[in-house]
């Protein structure tokens, strides 16, 4: 193969999964989006930016295999290759866990950039799982992003925080600071959507949320029992049994990579009386 510069492989895309508010589903989303991209054949790595409170490893089910972490790599104590945990289910998927013992100051801009630059050469997609809040960890997770998935629940504090995060994406990121660079492409992912409560007027509609935030919609993830089950098992929800949440994540990933997929609001079927009587463990 010639080493012609113009023919070099395109660099991977950095996508931050962020929200401001905690508990809205950032890590669930990072795991599901990462796994679905990998299942579609894209080389994907998911990075945990929540230094001191790592949880991506648990959600991805690789918590027993963590040896080195993101901070070890930044500080030169380990090579990137040594810290990456290859998923046992999907060969295209890897996890870069964060440190459970250090504090957020260990995330330096130069260090994060160096690691991301290296990952861009090997992976098609680099998913940055942001911590909650808008402090250092969250800022580092979004700083070098090309795109952003803003995870939002149809609930006032979550929408407000999402608006704040959208503001930061447009002001403090690398792309925001570079003249001539395209701004970070931000899309909203609505999670924990409960159709019955929307129908009864108890929950804001998707249109309500979009009207307030004024950014494109990536997808609507329904409230689903499958999400807790997947987290219990340490399996990204798209790799577990079929569910409405999994189907919604599959659609969202399709849109993320440019497919035209009609927006739909899915919900898990309610169990019938017979199924409830002969309950099978889930």
């Amino acid at each position: 193969m010639s080493k012609d510069l113009t023919l070099e492989e395109p660099l991977g895309k950095v996508i931050v999964v962020t929200s401001g508010k905690g508990g809205v589903g950032k890590t669930t989303t990072s795991a599901a989006v990462g796994a679905e991209l990998a299942r579609r054949g894209h080389k994907t790595v998911v990075i945990d930016f929540d230094v001191g409170l790592r949880n991506l490893d648990m959600i991805m089910g690789c918590e027993r295999r963590v040896v080195f972490d993101f901070i070890n790599v930044i500080q030169g104590d380990a090579k990137l290759k040594q810290a990456l945990i290859r998923d046992r289910r999907l060969e295209n998927l890897a996890v870069l866990p964060t440190s459970q013992t250090r504090d957020k100051d260990a995330l330096t801009k130069a260090g994060v950039e160096k690691v991301l630059d290296e990952l861009r050469k090997e992976f098609d997609y680099i998913i940055c799982d942001s911590p909650a809040g808008i402090e250092r960890g969250a800022q580092m997770a979004m700083h070098f992003a090309d795109e952003a998935i803003v995870v939002t629940n149809p609930e006032v504090s979550s929408v407000r925080d999402s608006d704040r995060v959208l503001g930061l994406l447009n002001s403090i990121t690398d792309r925001a600071g570079k003249t001539g660079a395209e701004p970070v492409k931000a899309q909203v992912l609505i999670t924990r959507h409960d159709k019955s409560r929307v129908d009864s007027g108890e929950m804001m509609t998707v249109e309500d949320v979009l009207e307030v935030l004024a950014v494109p919609l990536l997808g609507i993830i329904p409230e689903s029992k499958a999400v807790l089950r997947a987290s219990n098992l340490g399996v990204p929800v798209v790799l577990d049994d079929p569910s409405a949440a999994a189907a919604a994540y599959e659609d969202a990933v399709g849109r993320l990579i440019g497919e035209q997929i009609e927006m739909r609001i899915a919900a898990d079927p309610r169990r019938g009386l017979l199924q409830r009587l002969f309950r099978r463990a889930v």
């Binding site: 987290s231 219990n232 340490g234």
Partner: peptide, 27 residues
């Protein structure tokens, strides 16, 4: 539900390691 048992077991194993500093194999 079976998945809740799995969750508890996974946590017990992980937290035992984290609390003890992993018996000489601290990260």
């Amino acid at each position: 539900a079976a998945s809740a048992n799995t969750a508890k077991e996974r946590l017990q194993i992980l937290l035992a390691h984290e609390r003890s500093g992993s018996g000489g194999a601290r990260p």
